[in-house]
Computed example of a mutant assay.
Amino acid sequence: MDTAARDEVDRRRAFVGLLANPVLDRRRHSELFALVRHPRHRSELMNWFSSRLGYRLVVTDTAARLFRLPLGDVVVAPRRVTTPPRRMLVLALLAAAAAEDAEDITTTQDLSDRVRVLSAREDCDVAGYDPDQFAERKLFEAAVELLVSAGVLWPVGADHGDGWARRADKIGTTYQVQREMLLRMVDPASFTAALGERGPVLTESAERFTVMRRLIELPVCLYTDLTEAERAYLIRQRSRVVAWCTEMTGWTVEQRAEGLALIAHDEADTDLPFPRLRAVDFVTLMILDDLFRRRADDDVVTDADLAAAVLEVAARYPKSITNEIASETARSERAMELLRALDLLRPGLRPGLWQLTPIAARYRDPRVVSVTARLEDTE
């Protein structure tokens, strides 16, 4: 492979890698970080993110940080199947504030002590943190892990995950505070949007950014989800948009009457591959197929249709029902979580109604190869 072709592949790997890991540090992501920081890739990547998506990529000697800046108060991002508890996020922010005043080397216990003091201040308008309660300690331990994943804390030594929450006599993991990443953890514009305060709208590029973000970040970009100005932009610039997506990812843009979808060639390149070889995905796929058959002319299904589909699939494929989804309620809830995260099903115009999106048609009439073995309870 010649140099130009290799650079094209490496830039795509760097671009997709940053979407999946918006916080990179030289130590934990050495290979990907090297691609991002490479002299032949760095400026091009920055240009792609800024001019095509309206994002900001910051690259230093030791780290890279991709900021998904909001348009006004809206951030286009994949829907999470599960979200961290609000209390965990609050404790993570308090721990980040505590880490700013901590020594360069700190511990779980030191951060916990600092957060207890910080949360008790009159000007800190949150419920006080009580490390004597196991539930609080468990949440705090998970909150610290969020900071580790954000590159703010680096575990030092081999004691990472030593069960601090269950052992009041332990100091927990030892961490090195990464002050550069700590300062870059939250972007002011994104923080303002998270608080529901409308920021500046980039009117000149808003249509381009919205369309590109929907294609890059979401399962599909449907014309019905776009404003009139955004639809006009996509229709007018469709060839350029498709070329950009192909250049940045190497994936295939599927064009249909309802909209466009960017299809990854490898399921490892998407945050939510479907269907995976696990019981929840199989049952969800079969429920979706049943709902597709029960849908009305306007692609609307009801809660009753969902309940009937859940029962039908369990009766037809009993070996697919693992402990995780043994009850009808569990099967229904897990299937709905997954279908909504994949944007295959949306809430209808009134309670009890659900709207199948055009993407659902891609999964109709699935061919079941074998159901002779019981599927595992795997995530």
Rank of each mutant, 00 (worst) to 15 (best):
M1N: 08
A5S: 12
E8D: 13
R12Q: 04
V16R: 14
L19I: 13
R27P: 02
L32W: 01
A34K: 05
A34S: 11
A34R: 06
L35M: 03
V36E: 02
H38Q: 04
H38L: 08
R42G: 03
F49V: 06
R56K: 09
D61P: 03
A64V: 05
R65H: 08
L71A: 12
L71K: 05
L71Q: 09
G72D: 09
P78M: 04
V81P: 02
P85R: 04
R87Y: 15
R87W: 07
L91F: 11
L91T: 11
A92L: 00
A95E: 01
E100P: 06
R116T: 15
V117A: 09
S119N: 04
A120P: 09
D125C: 10
D125F: 10
D125N: 11
V126R: 07
P131L: 02
Q133W: 06
F134Q: 10
E136G: 02
R137S: 11
F140Q: 00
L147P: 09
G157Y: 00
A158K: 12
H160F: 11
T173P: 00
T174D: 02
T174I: 05
Q176G: 00
V177W: 01
L182S: 12
P188F: 14
A189C: 08
S190A: 10
S190P: 00
L202N: 13
E204A: 13
S205Q: 08
T210W: 02
V211D: 03
L215R: 00
E217P: 13
P219H: 03
P219R: 12
L226T: 14
E228F: 11
E228I: 10
A229F: 02
S239E: 15
V241T: 08
V242W: 08
V242C: 07
V242N: 11
W244V: 12
C245L: 15
G250L: 06
Q255R: 14
R256H: 12
A257T: 15
E258M: 09
G259D: 04
L260K: 02
A261M: 06
L262I: 10
L277S: 13
A279D: 00
V283R: 10
V283L: 05
D290S: 15
F292D: 14
D297W: 04
L306I: 13
L306A: 00
A309V: 07
V313Y: 09
K319D: 07
S320I: 09
T322I: 00
R334F: 01
A335M: 03
L344S: 02
R346G: 08
R350D: 08
L353F: 11
D365G: 02
P366S: 03
A373W: 09
D377C: 09
D377H: 03
T378A: 09
T378Y: 08
